[in-house]
Nucleic acid binder design. Structure first.
Length: 484
RNA sequence: GUGGCCGUAGUUCAGUCGGUAGAACACCUGGUUGUGAUCCAGGACGUCGCGGGUUCAAGUCCCGUCGGUCACCCCA
């Protein structure tokens, strides 16, 4: 009996880890299912890297913070390794604390042969030797989506890529039943903020500090912020901005990139989810432009992301702009629990068993060459990816996101072409290369042609033209959904 | 890394001023009613996280330690 107590003490799970009994594992699968589903529908391809990397990989860009929280590893077979650990306290390998360095390494290795943009997602375990607390464990799952590389140079294209990342995260929250009134994506532009700070006589050396203090703006009282800023030698104008106009919301930043992003978000029907917030800075320095943060119930930060235009270069790749977003399973699980959005028992089993979104693109949407139709592409694609909820389900008071009658038109995997050409033949070739099932040409609001790429049959020839508007009986998404 | 709170039966928890433990649910057995559902009776069940200290006496007070939790730090 005594031995039993002793051995069970030794065999307990390490601090900050979780044992997943059947019901627990299903809950985790539910979240992973939602992650994969949203990513696939939005046209992201899944990748995975090793769960441990060489320690060097993490010392390239990181500060003390990351390095001190690494779980380090060595084989123990090489006397050199053992020696190194004893002498330097640093092992040759480390369990990965984040995905971005691996992503940068993987991208850099094949940068020349990869398409632009390259849309990748991954969801796997990460390890940080932190002290556990709410929403933060030492082993957790994290979902990452990244759009790497740009299909063109213009600011609009950059905004489009940013919007793709935001769109995908919104599709996730939507699919899990999180409402736009309880979760907001706060967006900001670090470039524009930097320009503004310089106009307040903040020096280049002070910039990082200025962002770092700005980032804590919501957490600390005004006088503490002022003291902190003054101690850092930041100019009075900055202090006034920090404690005054940024909180009142009256501050109007000159940020064309942010405006372009907002325009794109309107096209994608994302406006209820996003809000400009010039107090968002997102911690460390590698974010270069757009930054965003998902905030639940007006205070809790759930996740974040942004644009990191020089990171790939830092990891030995060609200069490549990129934008990404990450979300952990622990915080997300907490949020779903709090909102009553985590199914249990039979409902959980059935939700997890539901088929995953198609890996093969179901719809490939292109404009017919008329520039006026190009915005329609984004609107239709957003609706295809989101699906159309059924009226019966919407009318029910006890509706839950996992119920089988949720959708009148189920969400599907929809893609667009990133080629700048307006040549329909080239666009069709792009669709073929990506193995899309349906080729969708937009000739106007009420003139959408759909072709089955496998059979070469035109649905339009038998059913007439389809419509962009989901409320219209001839909605293109319904035609595709019925055949998908 | 710093600080607050917590750790008692399989589970959720109670346990007063220090006097060597209790409830509910769950479990097992028997009985009743034509179901394995209800109800009744009975039963088993704990090194009070672990180690040390104070005391005649510690679940209770003190120190340490491990684990949990919340906040700070940090947020990749």
């Amino acid at each position: 009996m005594g031995t039993k107590t002793k051995s069970s003490k030794k065999l307990q799970a390490p601090k900050g880890t979780r044992d997943h009994y059947p019901e627990d594992l299903l809950r985790q699968r539910y979240i992973q299912h939602a992650w994969r589903d949203a990513s696939l529908r939005c046209g992201f391809d899944e990748i995975e890297g090793p769960t441990f990397e060489t320690t060097d990989l993490y010392s390239i860009k990181s500060g003390e913070g990351i390095l001190s929280e690494l779980f380090q590893a060595y084989s123990g077979k090489s006397p050199k390794d053992v020696e190194q650990v004893q002498e330097t306290g640093t092992a040759p390998f480390a369990l990965r604390p984040e995905f971005t360095p691996t992503l940068a390494r993987m991208y850099a290795a094949r940068a020349k042969q990869l398409p632009k943009p390259c849309k990748w997602f991954t969801a796997g375990p990460y390890f940080r030797a932190e002290r556990p607390q709410r929403g933060r464990l030492r082993e957790f799952l994290q979902w990452n989506i990244d759009v790497i590389g740009l299909p063109g140079e213009s600011a609009e294209i950059k905004a489009q890529m940013d919007a793709e990342v935001i769109e995908c995260s919104v599709r996730l929250f939507e699919s899990l039943g999180v409402q736009a009134d309880s979760l907001k994506l706060r967006i900001n532009d670090r470039d524009a903020m930097a320009r503004f700070f310089y106009s307040l006589d903040v020096t280049e050396n002070q910039l990082e500090q200025a962002f770092s203090i700005l980032d804590r703006q919501a957490k600390l009282p005004a006088d503490a912020l002022a003291t902190m800023a003054e101690d850092a030698g930041l100019p009075q104008a900055y202090v006034q901005f920090l404690t005054g106009s940024v909180t009142s919301g009256s501050f109007d930043l000159d940020a064309p990139a942010l405006d372009a992003l907002c325009t794109q978000c309107i096209r994608l029907n994302l406006s209820p989810w996003i809000t400009k917030d010039h107090s968002i800075a997102r911690g460390l320095a590698y974010y270069t432009g757009t930054v965003f943060e998902a905030i639940a119930d007006g205070e809790r930060a759930i996740s974040g992301g942004g644009r990191y235009d020089n990171l790939i270069e830092l990891f030995g790749g060609p200069p490549t702009p990129a934008c990404g977003f990450g979300l952990g399973d622990v915080v997300l699980g907490n949020l779903l629990d709090d909102k009553g959005l985590m199914p249990e028992g039979v409902e959980l089993m059935e939700a997890v068993a539901r088929p995953q979104a198609s890996i093969r693109p179901v719809a490939f949407v292109v404009p017919n060459g008329d520039p006026d139709n190009e915005p329609l592409v984004h609107t239709l694609v957003a609706n295809l990816r989101r699906g159309i909820e059924s009226e019966e389900w919407l009318a029910r008071d006890d509706r839950k996101p996992w119920q089988p009658d949720r959708y009148a038109v189920a969400p599907v995997h929809a893609r667009v072409s990133y080629k700048s050409t307006r040549n329909l033949g080239k666009l069709r070739a792009d669709a073929e290369k990506q193995h899309a099932r349906y080729f969708v040409e937009i000739h106007g609001d009420d003139k959408v042609e759909i072709t089955n790429m496998d059979t070469r049959e035109s649905l339009t020839s038998t059913s007439g033209s389809f419509h962009i508007d989901p409320a219209n009986p001839g909605y293109a998404g319904r035609a595709i959904g019925e055949r998908a």
